[in-house]
Simulated scan of single mutants.
Amino acid sequence: MSTCTTVSRQLGEAQGATAPTATTWLLLEQPGPWGAKALTSSHLDPELGRALERAAEGTGVRIALVRRPGRHADRRTQSVRQVYAAHTLPGNSWVRSAYTAAPEELLRLDLAALGRGEHHTFDTVLRGVPHTAGPLALVCTNGKRDRCCALLGRPLAADLAAAGEHGVWEVSHLGGHRFSPTLLLLPHGYAYGRAETGAVRDALRGLREGRISLDGCRGRSAWERPAQAAELAVRALSGEHGADALSVVSTDALPAPAAPGPHGAPAAEDGTPCWEVTVAHTDGRRWHVTVARGAAGPPRPESCGAAVLGTPARMDVLAVRELSLPHAPR
């Protein structure tokens, strides 16, 4: 039987604007097996996992478990765990590092502040310090969530680690199983799919120099999907690869576009969600990008073992318009 990744590749499904969304990532080391919902189905106390899920709601923080690549001994104790916090918005992207022997300390963090990019409680509660060892590469490997993540993700994580790449971790969930192997690069929060070792190493090399690779890029997690589509479209049009050169200024809902009638004449509105996204460059340039939500057909498995076939939502860029810069005073 074909896997969800095989079908997605055969259909040529586009990956753009499918990145998981979070302004800040909070990562807790948890070796051993993970269940489908890792925060409540691993060797982490499930009550703590549920409490962390509740605390993160509406804050912009996404909490995930990480473990080092390699064989996962089924250990029920972990004396000291690595913890990372990473903020992904342009102009304020950072990674903080800490260790804890008491993961319940994470409940003392001000997650709303963390979501805004303020790391004071991370530093005071967990004795956090800047992470200066280069970008983090998080490869999704949770086979209980989707078997493709384990079959394709674990070899990628192992290959990267064996190649001497530092900061490589397995992560519990990134979404988009059909694009496996998937990974997230921090601090900038760009997600990638159908990743191969060589391409990932190139992306990491570029990121150390402040450049973003667009090869297999799914978008920046700091923004919702319409804004992800707009930012990637501007990058493709302008040739801009600077990691923090572009930011999303606004995302405004538009009236639904008219459905085509007989002979191409406009007919009634078809109800398609549509947005105008304003993307700004640090040099002052701006673009208006029109994005509409469509559906990827034909129906396909969105994950292995799914009971029904689905038509995943996709973001279609309808237009990109660069705005004229105001004339400088004479």
Score class of each variant (00 low, 15 high):
Leu39Asn: 08
Val80Gly: 06
Arg50Gln: 14
Val95Thr: 10
Arg67Cys: 02
Gly35Met: 14
Val80Pro: 06
Gly91Arg: 12
Arg50Ala: 13
Leu39Val: 09
Thr21Val: 15
Val7Ser: 00
Gly58Asn: 09
Ser97Lys: 05
Trp25Phe: 15
Arg81His: 07
Trp25Asp: 00
Gly49Ile: 12
Trp94Met: 00
His72Pro: 06
Ala38Ile: 06
Gly16Tyr: 00
Ser42Asn: 02
Gln78Ala: 11
Ala98Ser: 07
Arg67Tyr: 01
Arg9Tyr: 02
Thr59Ser: 06
Thr88Val: 03
Val61Asn: 01
Gly58Gln: 11
Asp74Gly: 05
Thr23Trp: 03
Thr6Gln: 04
Pro90Trp: 02
Arg54Pro: 05
Ala73Arg: 12
Ala55Gln: 03
Ser8Pro: 08
Gly91Leu: 14
Leu48Tyr: 10
Thr77Met: 11
Arg71Lys: 13
Asp74Phe: 09
Arg75Gly: 06
Gly70Ile: 06
Gly12Leu: 13
Ser42Cys: 04
Thr88Ile: 01
Arg81Leu: 12
Gly49Val: 12
Leu27Met: 13
Ala98Met: 06
Leu28Lys: 12
Thr6Glu: 03
Tyr84Lys: 07
Ala51Ile: 11
Pro90Phe: 05
Pro20Ala: 14
Ser97Ala: 13
Arg75Glu: 07
Leu52Thr: 04
Pro46Glu: 04
Gln82Thr: 12
Ala19Pro: 02
Ala51Pro: 05
Val61Tyr: 00
Trp25His: 04
Thr40Met: 04
Gly70Trp: 05
Thr88Phe: 00
Tyr99Asn: 03
Pro69Thr: 09
Gln10His: 10
Ala17His: 03
Thr40Ala: 04
Glu13Arg: 09
Leu27Phe: 08
Arg96Trp: 11
Ala14Phe: 13
Ala38Val: 08
Arg62Tyr: 07
Leu48Ile: 11
Pro46Asn: 06
Ala64Phe: 02
Leu65Ile: 08
Thr88Ser: 04
His43Asp: 08
